[in-house]
Design a protein around this nucleic acid. Structure first.
Lengths: 332, 332
DNA sequence: CTGTTAGCGCATTCAG
DNA sequence: CTGAATGCGCTAACAG
């Protein structure tokens, strides 16, 4: 129910100029006499004039809006990532349209349809697991999109993220290099998350033939981590280290271990994934893999804007992630 | 760089009808012959037609977009809240435009300007601390807005949330009823957060004349909580309980206490605020105040949509929040 | 440097 | 029940 607000023609009338000139001033065209510009600007101020976005979009066919569909916004590395996207877009006057899919392909499709209907010009998706219908829709319309949180050299769709397979393998190798040969790996649901699957595969590959790896699938939460460790412990104290595919799970592991009277890392080593802001501050400080969430947000937003404005192709880019060694893992 | 996609007139031509009729069908007007409707729908499908949002907005003056500006999205109760808003809006085909202000009035104003420029029809703000310029802008344009996470009966602007003052007082009273007379209160920055200030005031009011309350201001993070407890402990073991104005701070307190070799709740009781999803799963389980984040999101989204569509005034509403008693507080 | 003129794609009168 | 005509507010040629 927006009130009537100054329009371009009001400014034109007020200044005795044409709407074209006002438009030029407002859009920063340089071919305007300084005096004129001044006058227009003053009138805009006075009339509280702000260009109507719909009219502008209709006329230019550009909405300066990017959509991101994420599986969840809760307790995770996504928050930082989204914040980075929003800030980066904002710097160049783009806006972020956000939707949450709950890792459900149907919901994702529905959300995308709606966001497209809101004028989103480009899409940021998570992982590579999406419905054919969704991609077809984007392709038919020529809407650019990127997969994030993953890195797939060979993907036909550009990916901006890290190599989950490799990172998990590195984590396992690191643990092995510290003398751990019997490792419990705790992770979230596999069926709806290709990143988790890639990590598991990477771990398996790294351990093959050398290590004894046991996998525990659980809900991606502190509670889930706790339960997984409890069930691990029920199986006997066979593991010298626990690798969690999320710091959140690692936190749950900490508490399960505390409750069981086991010391970290004296009795069991624990390693995480994410490097959430608190992971350096739990006791003992958590050894984890630092995922470049923020950098990923900046990168994806930047590339999308460049694609939109200069038709520059989106480049698949691998972001560095490294192991942060802290105190929760000990050498055997 | 969206590809040319079917327009209303293409559908009209295809079906041999007028654009007006197509528009009627697409918008679900009932005065259309079933046969005609069928034919149009088929053509829409075939031509992959989706109404151009900008044109529609320009014509109807409604964008079906609501904006939310939040101070931060990280580690907090905000994630759940945002998710609830998004889902609720989505159910009625509204979209969420999100911006992050970093609790900075200038950034907030800039973001609002931009969101308004993107066509946001209503605004969701956090707390009651906003720049005059921002509110003037909304008022001049007749854009509805709500303050959330707070409840102020007397506020001229509608508020939807909980009573921070009262809740903090309740928390202090609860601790007192368990025999605690010497309480440390840990909270985030006061200068940029009116909700924190309200909680502090509530605590002070509840403790006046009866209790010994010491306040520790710190950064709102696990690390902040840790540091606050460390400085509290440096002052001698005077406090029997710690009240944190956020579960995140409570988690930091846990670790600081663990490191100091102090048991919870044997040596010190700890109470939080938020009831984040993990707070039931730390050890010992955290006694805290359950803030209705999700309900708040649903409520604010619903009311805003009703205001937009039926000019229904936004009602200030108080959401219930209650103390969740778990194991981190003991009776003296 | 500035004004005139066309649309952008759709919803909506008003006729019929 | 359907169509023709109009305008939403702005930008983009094209003149001048």
């Amino acid at each position: 129910m927006a009130k009537k607000v100054g329009r371009i023609r009001d400014v034109a009338r007020e200044t005795g100029l044409s709407t074209a000139t006002v438009s030029r001033v407002v859009n920063g065209a340089k071919n305007v006499k300084p005096d004129t510009r001044e006058k227009v600007l003053r009138a805009c101020e006075m009339l509280d004039y702000v260009p109507n976005p719909a009219a502008r979009t209709l006329s230019t066919n550009q909405s300066r809006t990017v959509a991101a569909i994420i599986p969840t916004i809760e307790h995770s590395v996504f928050a930082k990532y989204i914040a980075a996207i929003e800030q980066t877009l904002g710097e160049r006057d783009y806006s972020l349209l956000l939707a949450i899919s709950n890792a459900d392909l149907e919901q994702e499709l529905k959300a995308a349809r709606q966001l497209l209907g809101m004028g989103a010009e480009a899409f940021i998706l998570s992982g590579s697991d999406h419905s054919r219908a969704l991609l077809d829709m984007f392709d038919r319309r020529g809407v650019p999109y990127v997969y994030t949180s993953i890195w797939e050299q060979a993907s036909p769709v550009p990916t901006i993220g890290y190599d989950n397979h490799l990172l998990a393998a590195r984590a396992v190798e690191f643990l092995a290099s510290e003398g751990h040969e019997n490792i419990a790996i705790i992770h979230g649901p596999l069926h709806d998350n290709d990143r988790t699957r890639a990590r598991r595969d990477g771990a398996v590959a790294a351990g093959r033939g050398k290590l004894k790896l046991d996998f525990f699938e659980t809900v991606l939460s502190v509670e889930g981590g706790k339960k997984a460790v409890r069930s691990m412990l029920r199986g006997g104290r066979r593991h010298s280290a626990i690798l969690c595919f999320s710091d959140v799970l690692a936190l749950g592991s900490y508490f399960a271990l505390f409750e069981a009277g086991l010391g970290i890392p004296q009795d069991v080593s624990v390693m995480g994934f994410d490097n959430l802001d608190w992971s350096a501050h739990v006791a003992p400080a958590l050894t984890t893999i630092d995922l470049p969430a923020e950098q990923m947000g900046v990168e994806v937003a930047t590339q999308l804007m460049q694609n939109l404005e200069m038709a520059q192709p989106i480049a698949t880019t691998l972001l560095a992630a490294k192991i942060i060694k802290r105190r929760s893992v000990r050498s055997l």
